[in-house]
Measured scan of single mutants.
Amino acid sequence: DHWHVHIDGERIRLDGASEEFIRTLEELIRRGTDARELKEIIKEYLR
């Protein structure tokens, strides 16, 4: 599956992301997590 998110107007691909990770991201977004912080979390995950 190819997922991607838009954060700060930037399109970030989440290739190979699990549904669990996507749900976690959605939860963080709902909580109002800062965009820079979200991008860091995604970069760490994709390593």
Rank of each mutant, 00 (worst) to 15 (best):
E26T: 13
D1M: 13
K43F: 14
E26M: 15
F21R: 00
E37S: 13
R36S: 12
L25M: 06
K43R: 14
I29K: 03
A17H: 03
I29A: 03
R13D: 15
H6E: 15
L25D: 00
L46K: 06
I7L: 09
A35F: 08
I41C: 04
A17K: 02
R13N: 15
H2E: 12
Y45T: 03
D8Q: 07
R30M: 10
R36Y: 13
W3H: 07
L14W: 02
E40W: 14
L25T: 01
D15F: 15
R31W: 07
R47K: 13
R31Q: 11
E10D: 07
S18M: 04
S18P: 12
E19N: 11
E44P: 04
G9L: 03
I7P: 01
R23I: 07
I42E: 00
R11V: 15
H4T: 08
K43T: 12
G9C: 04
L38T: 01
E44D: 08
E26H: 11
E19D: 10
G32S: 03
W3E: 05
E10F: 09
S18H: 10
I22Q: 05
K43M: 14
E44A: 13
R30I: 08
Y45W: 11
Y45H: 05
L25A: 01
T24K: 14
I22Y: 07
Y45L: 03
I12S: 01
E37L: 14
G16R: 09
E20W: 15
G16M: 07
T33L: 10
L28P: 00
W3G: 05
D34A: 09
F21K: 00
D1N: 15
I42S: 00
K43I: 12
T24Q: 13
R23L: 09
Y45P: 00
F21A: 01
E37Y: 13
G32C: 04
R23H: 07
H6T: 14
R36F: 11
Y45F: 09
L38A: 01
T33Q: 04
K39I: 09
L38E: 00
T24C: 08
T33G: 05
A17E: 03
L38M: 05
H2R: 10
L28K: 05
G32Y: 04
E27Q: 10
I41K: 09
T33A: 10
E44K: 11
G16H: 10
E19F: 14
W3Q: 09
G9F: 04
R23F: 07
V5A: 07
D1H: 13
T24L: 11
E20N: 09
I42M: 03
R23D: 04
D34R: 08
W3M: 09
I22W: 05
I12A: 01
L46M: 13
I7N: 01
I29H: 02
E19H: 12
E10Q: 05
L38P: 00
R13Y: 15
E10S: 04
K43D: 11
L46V: 08
K43W: 14
R30W: 10
E26C: 09
R31P: 00
G32Q: 05
E26N: 10
T33K: 04
R11I: 15
K39P: 01
T24R: 15
R36E: 11
R47W: 10
I29V: 08
H6M: 15
I41V: 10
G9P: 02
A35S: 13
E27P: 01
E27S: 12
W3P: 12
D15E: 13
F21L: 06
I7Q: 01
I7T: 01
I29C: 03
H2S: 14
H6V: 15
H2Y: 11
W3A: 09
D15V: 13
G16C: 06
I41F: 13
L28D: 01
R11N: 15
H6N: 12
L14Q: 00
L28Y: 12
H4E: 14
Y45R: 02
H2W: 08
D15M: 11
R31S: 10
R23V: 06
S18K: 06
R11L: 15
Y45G: 02
V5M: 07
I41Q: 04
R47Y: 10
R11K: 15
K43P: 00
R30C: 06
V5H: 02
R47E: 09
E26D: 09
E40M: 13
D34P: 15
I22L: 08
I12V: 09
T24I: 10
S18R: 05
H4G: 05
T24D: 07
V5T: 08
L25F: 05
E19Y: 14
E10C: 03
G32H: 05
E40D: 08
T33P: 02
L28T: 03
E37R: 13
Y45C: 01
L38I: 12
H2Q: 13
R31C: 05
E26W: 15
E27I: 11
E26P: 00
E26Y: 14
R31L: 12
I12F: 14
L14R: 01
E19I: 14
H2K: 10
A17W: 04
Y45S: 03
G16A: 03
E37M: 13
K43S: 09
E37T: 15
R31E: 08
